[in-house]
Amino acid sequence: MTEQPTMTTDADQAAFELALSRILGNPEHSQRQQITDKLASEPWADVAVFAAASEQIDALNLKPWQAPPSHIDDPEAVIALGTSHPDYKAAKLLQRMLAHGVSKFHPEPLLAIEAVKLGRGRR
């Protein structure tokens, strides 16, 4: 279950807008109608968090039981539970994202990290 972020940064806002634009701007996107319907009945921020997580799941090719980085609130606490924890990989990725200044909501986490490393990243 994704919780609404209590405080967002400019990078988070940009990540939300990117996730929504990727879905809404692609007439063939499988979730386009779902996001359109959600925007008509739910707060924008809630839909944006949902869209970001959905895009992360797709970008990272996650299985249904695997959490995207945007679902992790405290990566250090999850990592401390060990590699057998189901959210360990998401927590490690989130830790890398944050270390590179990438929003936890970025729809393409691995590409965003690489872009930052190459000095041309949109965080």
Results as ranks from 00 to 15, higher is better:
residue 12 D to K: 05
residue 38 K to L: 15
residue 78 V to A: 05
residue 114 E to I: 10
residue 55 E to T: 09
residue 72 I to L: 09
residue 8 T to D: 11
residue 110 L to C: 02
residue 41 S to R: 00
residue 97 M to E: 03
residue 97 M to P: 04
residue 64 P to I: 03
residue 32 R to W: 12
residue 115 A to S: 12
residue 36 T to C: 06
residue 22 R to L: 07
residue 73 D to T: 15
residue 37 D to G: 06
residue 122 R to I: 10
residue 91 A to V: 00
residue 25 G to D: 04
residue 52 A to Q: 08
residue 1 M to N: 05
residue 30 S to P: 03
residue 37 D to Q: 12
residue 33 Q to A: 14
residue 113 I to E: 10
residue 22 R to M: 11
residue 46 D to C: 11
residue 65 W to T: 14
residue 101 G to N: 03
residue 15 A to H: 03
residue 102 V to E: 08
residue 52 A to M: 10
residue 46 D to H: 08
residue 64 P to A: 01
residue 101 G to Q: 11
residue 97 M to I: 00
residue 110 L to G: 03
residue 93 L to H: 08
residue 34 Q to E: 15
residue 77 A to T: 12
residue 101 G to C: 05
residue 71 H to Y: 14
residue 58 D to R: 06
residue 82 G to K: 13
residue 54 S to C: 10
residue 61 N to F: 01
residue 20 L to Q: 01
residue 66 Q to T: 07
residue 32 R to I: 13
residue 115 A to T: 00
residue 94 L to T: 07
residue 99 A to K: 01
residue 102 V to F: 10
residue 51 A to Y: 04
residue 80 A to Q: 08
residue 11 A to I: 05
residue 66 Q to E: 08
residue 98 L to Y: 09
residue 73 D to W: 10
residue 87 D to W: 01
residue 122 R to V: 11
residue 40 A to C: 02
residue 20 L to W: 01
residue 48 A to T: 00
residue 6 T to N: 02
residue 87 D to C: 11
residue 55 E to N: 02
residue 3 E to I: 06
residue 41 S to H: 00
residue 43 P to S: 07
residue 83 T to G: 00
residue 91 A to S: 09
residue 1 M to S: 09
residue 104 K to C: 13
residue 10 D to C: 07
residue 34 Q to A: 14
residue 16 F to L: 02
residue 100 H to R: 12
residue 69 P to F: 07
residue 4 Q to E: 05
residue 4 Q to K: 10
residue 34 Q to M: 12
residue 6 T to E: 03
residue 88 Y to N: 14
residue 69 P to I: 13
residue 104 K to Q: 10
residue 72 I to H: 01
residue 5 P to T: 08
residue 92 K to A: 11
residue 61 N to Q: 15
residue 34 Q to Y: 12
residue 70 S to H: 04
residue 21 S to N: 15
